[in-house]
Design a protein around this nucleic acid. Sequence first.
DNA 1: TTCTTTTATGAATACGTATTCATAAAAGAC
DNA 2: GTCTTTTATGAATACGTATTCATAAAAGAA
Lengths: 330, 330
Amino acid sequence: MVSSKDVAKFAGVSQSTVSRVLNNPRLVDAKTFEKVTKAMKELNYRPNSIARSLVKQQTQSIALISGPLHNPFFVETTTSIVNYSKERGYNVNVHFENFGDNMAVYQDVLNQKVDGIILSSILYEDPIYEELIKSEVPFIMFNRKHKKNGHYVEMDNVQAGRIATEHLLSLNHRKIVWIGGPLSMTTFKGRFDGFKEVMLEKGIEVSDHNCKTTDTSKSDIKKVLQEVLAVKERPTAIFAATDSIAIYLIDLLIEKGYRVPDDISVIGVDNIALSQHNSFQLTTVGMEEEKDLGRIAIEHLIEIINEAPADFINKTYKNKLYNRSTTKKI
Amino acid sequence: MVSSKDVAKFAGVSQSTVSRVLNNPRLVDAKTFEKVTKAMKELNYRPNSIARSLVKQQTQSIALISGPLHNPFFVETTTSIVNYSKERGYNVNVHFENFGDNMAVYQDVLNQKVDGIILSSILYEDPIYEELIKSEVPFIMFNRKHKKNGHYVEMDNVQAGRIATEHLLSLNHRKIVWIGGPLSMTTFKGRFDGFKEVMLEKGIEVSDHNCKTTDTSKSDIKKVLQEVLAVKERPTAIFAATDSIAIYLIDLLIEKGYRVPDDISVIGVDNIALSQHNSFQLTTVGMEEEKDLGRIAIEHLIEIINEAPADFINKTYKNKLYNRSTTKKI
DNA sequence: TTCTTTTATGAATACGTATTCATAAAAGAC
DNA sequence: GTCTTTTATGAATACGTATTCATAAAAGAA
């Protein structure tokens, strides 16, 4: 391991001068600069980022706690976050949500020094919120949020739920089943509330038989779909709370011999890129804004890191219907 | 920022003792241990990982340079790598291959102190190899490899190419087009070589019109497919060099009104999880081994970090046909 | 010339931890 | 009781950098 001291000795200058060559070249004589630069090259010197972090009290790295990549939504956000961070000179430490024990993931992140945290994994009533606040590391939530506020960016989940439901109703569907994930996540809660509101406005009851929550795993979704189809009067439409769930449901339906949308309509939420160029064109609800939430959030986070704003950043984006070809009038 | 010195003062002991409480509790008296632990809790103390890294000369973090996540293969490997690393106490710094300028990505990685590097992004004749060697950071390549060896794990790409081609030939296909990516990547080169070998053995010529390379982007694949279908005697089968390409091709074909496999057969390579539970069941070639290459590679990398083996780890896994439903006899 | 300002550099220090070395106190051996 | 070993702790140091402070040399002003 060659250090700045080695370079200094080699070039016949002090370590301070070597450091200045890197950080403040205008303070050093052209002749000296040349010597030192040559020595660096000669010795294949690379500044030790750890030592630099220690003295600068910043690591130029960000922790991402993401939902699982088998959900294409998180594929997009992770890509955005990693690439934009890099552009801005930050490294990204990636962690995945662990449904069994998220606390362990958080502890991991907090024990590692980072300049900021970006997370999609928080629950509406998550005790980790206090830990994050106590740690004093800037953090932003995207997609999901916490009841105590904090910085966050999200879509208007209730509105999304309303739009999807209104669309299905406008196509004359009445037997509609909502299939989503845990209501402890604000995305699912909001989208469900929107569904429920509109259904009740239309005078349709919402209960266990037309509202199904899963743990978002493929096996659980499969099980739930089985239940839904087993009923004597099977639904004519499914409102999947995410595109990821919608896509998997459609795969299952096709496998079982159903035609979508002829036999059954399916609508999702998120408008993930995949929904536009698949063998089927998924009808979905998504943000009017074209940047994805990951990208929006990481831009804000870096801004927060550099400027420490007094107020919380809270953005809730409006949605619209992306009417494609997995829903149909009956 | 509360330091071990603060804890020491609060507990009325020296900083050394605080450090010992964390790293060698058996060296400290039970009474003292209690006092210090309480002080830590009281002050909400978290050891500074940067300072620790500096003195220990290890960061407990690994850099991953991955292919893009829009290829589901890398979704699987990234998930494996991040999760397994976490299990073993390592953090993962994620970077994505940048086709325009990969050198910038590598420089980024080398400027950041990590204990090891795992990469899928290397080319057969990549100048970065020398840089990696010079940096003295342990690294392993997965999926792709370099002509100069180094640690790597891969599938037998030539064999995969042979199996896929033999399968299509056994179904009486003769007009077969190979669609892949840059031959500077060993995956594509090997799979193409296998294809070519078998075709030539059968006496079928391989030239520009039945061998198409893309940059693996959707737009380029689309363009190439157009060319392929525009020929008067259009192919009856397509050998897609990766499942990712295969899946996208099938989407495009269906969009254009072709039936797969009735009008045209498609086979892929990789056996990604997605290929098994999609609306279509992709016929593909994949490893006999059930662990994915990312997982295999990260296990080896951590072993290399801890044991510095004398010899290079070189593993080439054998493949088999996963005969599902996107290929058909004619 | 003489005094002041600027430029270029090195010495010293700080960042927060782990670890070695020295030592005082306690425990054990006899 | 004395001598040896063990236990517990603090002081000092190292990790590799950035930065402040001091100072010598050079340049500019008069």
